[in-house]
């Protein structure tokens, strides 16, 4: 069995703040980390390896410093880390990213047939959740997104049974390999590397593949292969706020004046009833 995990290095967005005066990012103290969903992908692969004979490869597209997250993957039990790094990959949107990753997986497949690809559901910086579906589509793998559980893994039958989160509940699905799954955070709690695992990973060299190594068509890479462009960037438009009353200076007055503002035309109609949306929804059901 050969499992490939796709990883992305992201800024720890919980830390990213914007300076409202200068309209710029405050970078000081913002760390680059492995996308938390991808960490779950690694954990999922490592758990499979503990039960079945598996080779786990991790691929990551990014600049040279993204090497650190591949090393982190190695420390957790991944066998091989490949950094996809080339100037030509820069500026890629999800279409170009899925192309680059598909090329890399095809290369890995030549070395050792790839059975399962595990991706994080989405990256916390872009939140697009598109790369996984794109990659599966390019490779013709079965696509299973939002996986919350791995029910069983049957390498001999080349089948996998997973639990998938949908709006109304959870589907239990069986699919033939090769497949690509994108995982939710609650699938598995990532482990902490052991000391030998960590030290081993620090001693390892990370393989770097450029565009030639993945036999890529330059037209489909990076910014050239990206149909979408960022035109401009700004801060979320502010909503104008109203007055603030201090309860310490008169609780009843503060509450009354607030209610006057809130309900000036709100409660002139009767009780706030059902949401308008439901009415439209009903209309759309037809006769």
């Amino acid at each position: 069995m050969h499992i490939v995990c796709c990883l992305k290095q992201v800024p720890d967005t919980a830390d990213v703040k914007i300076d409202s005066q200068t309209n710029t990012l405050i970078r000081e103290g913002v760390e680059s980390i492995m996308n938390p969903y991808d960490l779950v992908a690694v954990e999922t692969a490592v758990r499979l390896k503990e039960k079945h004979e598996c080779l786990i490869s991790a691929v990551c597209m990014g600049p040279a410093q993204a090497e650190s997250i591949l090393r982190q993957a190695l420390s957790l039990g991944v066998d091989k880390g490949i950094l996809l790094s080339d100037r030509a990959f820069a500026g890629a949107d999800t279409l170009a990213t899925s192309y680059t990753l598909a090329q890399a997986v095809s290369m890995l497949d030549r070395q050792h047939q790839v059975d399962l690809i595990i991706c994080g559901k989405q990256a916390i910086d872009g939140d697009t959740a598109q790369t996984g579906p794109g990659l599966a589509t390019r490779l013709g793998f079965a696509l299973l997104t939002y996986i919350t559980g791995l029910e069983s893994f049957k390498p001999s039958q080349r089948k996998i049974i997973v639990r998938r989160k949908v709006e109304e509940g959870q589907e239990v699905l069986e699919v033939n390999l090769p497949a690509l799954i994108t995982v939710e955070l609650d699938l598995a709690r990532p482990r902490r590397a052991s000391l030998p695992g960590l030290m081993k990973s620090l001693r390892r060299k990370i393989e770097v593949w450029d565009k030639n190594a993945i036999e890529a068509d330059a037209e489909q890479l990076g910014i050239k292969g990206s149909p979408t462009w960022v035109r401009r960037i700004g801060v979320p438009s502010p909503r104008a706020g109203g007055p603030t009353f201090n309860a310490a200076e008169g609780l009843q007055d503060a509450v009354d004046r607030s209610l006057d503002i809130l309900f000036q035309d709100f409660f002139t109609a009767d009780e706030p009833g059902v949401a308008e949306g439901e009415e439209h929804g009903k209309k759309f059901q037809g006769n």
Binding site: G126, Q130, L143, V166, E167, T228
Partner: peptide
């Protein structure tokens, strides 16, 4: 951008080789 819509959009954009902006 529901779970179905995001899943489907990624597949369709890849089939059509066009750009997709999420969320």
């Amino acid at each position: 951008a529901t779970s179905q819509g995001r899943d489907l959009a990624g597949v369709v954009a890849t089939h059509l080789k066009t750009g997709l902006t999420a969320d």
